[in-house]
């Protein structure tokens, strides 16, 4: 059933996800939203790995395992990032990036 959907639609989806993540990272001002944008990028990568594995190399599992590791490490990264965001909130009483700018140039 899966194969009735062509691979290119999956790739279009992952490309859109990835670049909306990049755009969100640059445009958004809230630290939590920036973190969400990064997660969106990593999930786009996961879709890429899984789709390439399923469609082009169905006899191996490297892409599947890579995506599993990405999920696990993204969780670790998010937990450290959220801890640092809480730290920012305690110091600055805000999590908007345009207010966290003591060091410049």
């Amino acid at each position: 059933m899966l194969y009735t959907i062509s691979i290119k639609y999956f790739l279009i989806l992952s490309t859109l996800m990835f670049f909306s993540g990049v755009a969100g990272f640059i445009i958004r001002k809230n630290l939590i939203t920036i973190l969400m944008s990064v997660e969106l990028m990593l999930n786009a990568v996961n879709i890429n790995f899984l789709v390439f594995n399923r469609y082009l190399y169905p006899d191996q599992l490297q892409g599947h395992f890579f995506s599993l590791f990405i999920v696990a490490i993204a969780a670790a990264e998010a937990s450290v990032a959220i801890a640092l965001i809480i730290n920012i909130y305690r110091r600055f009483n805000t999590i908007m990036v345009n207010k966290v700018d003591e060091m410049k140039y």
Partner: peptide, 27 residues
């Protein structure tokens, strides 16, 4: 605190870019 958040977010962005490249090479 500012240094920590700047480091983790830019390294997360760079990891995302790097992995996107790796997925294409795998493809």
């Amino acid at each position: 605190a500012e240094a920590g958040i700047k480091l983790i977010l830019s390294s997360a962005l760079s990891t995302g870019l790097l992995l996107y490249g790796l997925s294409m090479i795998y493809g």
